[in-house]
Computed example of a mutant assay.
Amino acid sequence: MPTIRPARESDRDALYSICLETGDSGEDATGLYADPLILGHVYAGPYLSYAPDFAFVLEDAEGVGGYVIGTPDSRAFEATLEREWWPKLRAQYPDPAAIPRESRTPDERIMAVIHDHTRKTSDVYDAYPAHLHIDLLPRMQGGGNGRALMERLFTALRDAGVPGVHLGVGGRNTRAQGFYQHLGFRELERTNGGITLGYML
């Protein structure tokens, strides 16, 4: 049976791989990105570095096959990344600002996220200051594994005094939407083809 444990620095490669293998609205994005690390740099790595107390992995005999990562204070987390995480990546990846949005490759779309100096916090953060990402490889999906991971993070967030958590999901990822709604998340807003869901802790 899979077990849940706190993530470790030695899990970084596994988190990056899972992030890529679930990066196309839950499907394998390996064929979409020329750089296999770029998704992980944005959606996995910073949480392991700057919010390790809120990072948990799901492990079986084959190794780590899923994770949930988050931060209790999205505003403070983003400020930390602006100081300590994004500058190194901005030096590594070129800014695609001169390339029309509709002409950008998947890699260039992620580079645009890395170079976004105008990140705006949402009113959602007032009631739901925490946010999370959860990804499971196919072998880990089902059997209550996703719920168990979420509950482990919810407990850590509650212990930290957090009132609510939010997440983003792609508008076409109906499977994930159903999973979150079954857990009790409710829709908060829709923007740019994505949906923000919130859960009161």
Rank of each mutant, 00 (worst) to 15 (best):
I18G: 00
L20W: 03
T22Q: 08
G23R: 00
G23N: 00
D24I: 04
D24E: 14
S25K: 07
D28H: 07
A29L: 04
G31R: 06
A34L: 13
L39K: 08
L39E: 04
H41C: 13
V42A: 13
V42M: 09
Y43F: 15
A44G: 04
A44C: 12
A44F: 01
P46V: 03
P46K: 04
L48A: 07
L48K: 01
A51I: 07
P52F: 10
D53C: 14
F54A: 09
F54G: 03
F54L: 13
A55F: 03
L58T: 03
E59F: 13
E59Y: 13
D60R: 04
A61Y: 02
E62T: 14
G65T: 08
G66S: 14
Y67G: 05
V68W: 00
V68M: 02
V68I: 14
I69F: 03
I69T: 06
G70E: 08
G70V: 12
T71M: 06
T71I: 05
P72F: 02
D73V: 06
R75K: 15
F77R: 02
A79G: 01
A79S: 12
A79I: 05
T80C: 08
T80R: 08
L81C: 11
R83V: 07
R83N: 06
R83F: 01
E84Q: 14
E84C: 08
W85S: 03
W86K: 01
W86C: 01
P87C: 02
K88N: 11
K88W: 11
K88L: 14
Q92N: 04
P94N: 13
A97G: 11
I99W: 06
R101D: 15
R101I: 15
E102F: 02
S103M: 10
S103C: 05
R104K: 11
R104Y: 11
T105V: 12
D107R: 06
I110G: 00
V113W: 05
I114M: 10
I114P: 04
D116R: 12
D116T: 08
T118K: 15
K120R: 15
D123V: 13
V124E: 10
Y125L: 09
P129D: 07
A130W: 01
H131T: 08
L132T: 06
H133E: 12
H133G: 05
H133A: 10
D135F: 00
D135N: 15
L136Y: 02
L136D: 00
L136R: 04
L137T: 08
P138A: 10
P138E: 12
M140K: 10
Q141F: 07
G142M: 09
G143T: 12
N145L: 04
G146N: 11
G146S: 11
R147P: 02
R147Q: 14
A148Q: 07
L149R: 02
M150C: 12
E151W: 02
E151R: 10
L153I: 09
T155H: 12
A156T: 03
R158N: 12
D159G: 02
G161D: 13
V162D: 01
P163F: 08
